[in-house]
Design a binder for these strands. Sequence first.
DNA 1: TTGAAAGCGATACCAT
DNA 2: ATGGTATCGCTTTCAA
Lengths: 340, 340
Amino acid sequence: MKNDNITIKDIAKALNLSYSTVSRALKGSYKISEGTQQLVKEYAATHNYRPNLMAQSLKNQKSRCIGVVLCSIPNSFFAEVISGIESIAYNKDYLLIITQNLESYEREVKNLDNLTWRSVDGLLVSLSTETEDISHFQRLHDQGLPMVFFDRVTDAIPTHQVITDNIGGAFDATKHLIERGYKRIATITSSPFLSITRERLEGYKKALTEHNMPVNDDHIQYCPHGGMVIEEIDSALNNLLQLNEPPDAILTASDRITIGSFSLIQRKGLLIPDEIAVAGFSNFNAPELFNPPLTTVRQNAFEMGKQATELLIQLVESKRPVTSFEKKVLPTELIVRKST
Amino acid sequence: MKNDNITIKDIAKALNLSYSTVSRALKGSYKISEGTQQLVKEYAATHNYRPNLMAQSLKNQKSRCIGVVLCSIPNSFFAEVISGIESIAYNKDYLLIITQNLESYEREVKNLDNLTWRSVDGLLVSLSTETEDISHFQRLHDQGLPMVFFDRVTDAIPTHQVITDNIGGAFDATKHLIERGYKRIATITSSPFLSITRERLEGYKKALTEHNMPVNDDHIQYCPHGGMVIEEIDSALNNLLQLNEPPDAILTASDRITIGSFSLIQRKGLLIPDEIAVAGFSNFNAPELFNPPLTTVRQNAFEMGKQATELLIQLVESKRPVTSFEKKVLPTELIVRKST
DNA sequence: TTGAAAGCGATACCAT
DNA sequence: ATGGTATCGCTTTCAA
């Protein structure tokens, strides 16, 4: 494409000034006379001058790019997060490079490698289910690359985090199930490596314990890939249903697991909620349209994307090294419907 | 972040060669001796040399960026498309800049402006519902910026297109409704500006006509913003239900409209399909879980993203101007469920 | 086959 | 307050 944008040189020539003067005038440097600034800025505006970002990047060693690391773009939760990220990044003239790893550690590493090659200024990261070793992030963090973790975070790297109140969300849902009278409440959750798994499990156990109900290890089933493969969910379900005393309610701990379990239970011909109740974390669009309408714990995905991005840009643009970090915790919303 | 990558100069110094020789050797230029090439490539490999993309971009006036223009990232159809785009772009080392306009013409123009500022090498475009005037694209196309339209396309700009067989999809669904015995089949569709609206309407009318059923203009309702605002869908529905002879079946012509209509009909207390049947275009995740399970026309969104991206990269990398363009038409899949 | 040097556009240091 | 110039890393033309 023919680039018909004007450059600093064009302005300099037209106004009989030097490149440097024009450059400084555009930045509003205090060492430039009012008159010249006016002149330059007006000329730039009327001729629709836009600094060449590639040149700026090369010179400043800043790309104004943010790398996004997550498992799956079409996942409704993450798609909403991305939308939130986009809303902030675009306003602040940052560009997004979005990578998806499909819950593969290997792809996560490869994607990260690509992102650093693109010399992103910072990273927004939500770990893959397979990721136990985080040294690939550690290394970049040690080199000073700003990063913010969201949703699936790690405490091993000291930086900002934006998460959901997973403990509270799981607690509320479990408590709701208990109060509805369910006696054997199981949970199908994601990979044990993930922070969200640990926290949601904690909320689940806390609710049981507070209501003097036993925590039965058989009632806790893991999906190593967060339900990315449906067979995982199926075998988790079968494990539960084959118990001597199968559960009468299930708390599903992520979007994919919720939809997958719901669907599989139907296919097995079990009645929800009469034979088994289902409540789960889900940012699915229209859980009220399900049969039966689904009780969900909803996260504010859009807000999570926004806050994580704001924190990251703060880090990226901070003049001095940041040493105190925030852990933002967003509230969940339990919406009770007919499935419980 | 401290950039510890080695540069061409480092290699040149280490091997006692000139910059230019190293540069050419790395590109496998034929004017460089085998020996030197080997030497340089090995050194580069072992020292993990990665060309600085910002420098390359500046020099070549190529950014290896693809701009994506669409209405909404979390929309399940577009999220899948993006996933398809990503799968190709990432393999070919192109970077994605994704913009969403929320069906606003103004935001589409502004986003486009930003994309060109970022000097993208090409565009993947799906028009907003508000967009009637496409001169902002026309201008860039005239300047030689490669672009490929997908889903919501325009014939006014001669370039590749990747679309769904909208006529066929709407025809199949309508035919199905007719064969099920419905007599008054209405449709709620998107903005009349959109190609998908025109084509789906054509399929709808064709099916009616072929079965000797009248095309009733009252039975065709438009949503100027594609159902981005739920009130649009509600008033479309009300218009239909207030008719002297209200329809006994509805074909909904887009994802948002399908879910919106389904939900509103339920809220109005009408029984699906007994009082009114619903079939619609939808790439929603789990229409089989709905109550009742939803009859859908499914598009291959992932494939659409892939093909559009392949065509675009072809255009971008083509040495000589491309003058003959493809219009790829992907098949739809009608999945009949209980809602019809 | 290889080297020297100009240049992509913007920035910042060193002069004046 | 302004101008000259080197520089970021890479590509490419022109010379040798």
